[in-house]
Write a protein that binds this DNA or RNA. Structure first.
Lengths: 204, 204
DNA sequence: GGGGATCTTGCGTGCCGCGCAAGATTGCGT
DNA sequence: ACGCAATCTTGCGCGGCACGCAAGATCCCC
């Protein structure tokens, strides 16, 4: 996506960021969020305690960072879709795009972070914030596509909110089911339902 | 609602809680969230610094408390609706119920706290958490009503999520518009749209 | 009216976010 | 090739906060 020839400076920056995120998730999973001190995380990532604060507002933000990157990608992919493609087809494609990169099943580090954030109350707020950011950006793109205005019309925000709700619910079901259907199928299904409206219960 | 003859003990408890919430919102609005120290809040409420921590997990939780109470009421009202009432009629009634108590326009302290939470990043997470809690409870009631199961079917959670999204978007528009239509009308409108599905932009 | 339960309060501790200034490292023009 | 300037990391320190603990106050109920 963003490949303006990256300087050495920014390369190291990315590497440090990635190292911190990875260490944060790993340690939080291993020993629990409360017991994974920032000091431990920065030690594992090979940076100073103080540097962590330059990158993230807190432990939760670091853990949520991967999910944030993934979520923002959805809006970005939607923006890249041809303008004449039907809206909900484009949305479905975009919503599934994060899973296309994954080889077989989704990135285990990503799923681990999701489980963590949805189970630990101290992380839940940050998790919801990332979704809110992504939803906002999605609304912007939907507005562009449909000739509506976020500030004026309810439509783009309602679409973005329902889309994200569908993704969210589908993901949650996928995570909490013993032998779940492929997550792409669950997402597709949920999107079909919200697009069509929800007057009555329909089978999954 | 809950009127088992309240003891003196619980009366004082409620009063303290209310005093802290009110002081928290007021001071946070007056001088900014960061500058409203917990010490100040507790001083204004006439309780100890330590007592605050017994009631709330943090400043954000105290500020969000009023909204949380309001939001949970929606699910509770829905549960009280007759079983043979059409689902979306009952939902609409329940979603509008918080505003029925307000005399003319919504409780100014409530609107103030909403503005605060949606504008201050440090509060946004807690705000979204309260909505998530309310959404969860709403999903439970929807499941009861429709004979579905939250753990099995996507339907109740999708309904709850879209309903809450509609309320959220409508509220946000009401707050950000110079001379807005009545909030009840905006909510009703948003609910109609999500219930019917969102294939194409429709006028508000 | 008294015993037991519940809650507030004060104290102490460890963690965290951030301001500040100094030192290190990279980018870039010449 | 080199040095200057910009950027960033790092160490230090401080104020604020969440929470455990024990003692004292308050209320419930018999």
């Amino acid at each position: 996506m963003t490949t303006p020839p990256l300087g050495l400076r920014d390369q190291k920056k990315m590497a440090r960021r990635e190292a911190m995120i990875q260490a944060a998730v790993r340690l939080a999973v291993e020993r629990g969020v409360e017991n994974a001190l920032i000091e431990d995380i920065t030690a594992a990532a090979g940076v100073s305690h103080r540097t962590f604060s330059n990158y993230f507002g807190g432990k939760a933000e670091a853990i949520a960072a991967k999910h944030l990157d993934r979520a923002r990608g959805v809006a970005e992919v939607l923006r890249g879709r041809p303008a004449d493609e039907p809206l909900w087809d484009a949305i479905t494609y975009a919503a599934l795009s994060p899973y296309r990169a994954d080889k077989k099943s989704p990135d285990p580090e990503w799923t681990a972070s999701i489980r963590l954030m949805t189970s630990e109350p101290s992380l839940l707020g940050e998790f919801l914030k990332t979704n809110a950011v992504a939803e906002r950006e999605l609304a912007d793109v939907v507005a562009e596509r449909t000739g509506t205005k976020v500030a004026r019309d309810l439509y783009p925000r309602l679409v973005a909110a329902t889309v994200w709700a569908a993704v969210e619910v589908a993901t949650d079901k996928w995570l909490s089911t013993a032998k779940p259907a492929p997550i792409t199928q669950l997402v597709r299904n949920a999107l079909r339902q919200v697009a069509a409206g929800l007057p009555d219960p329909s089978a999954d």
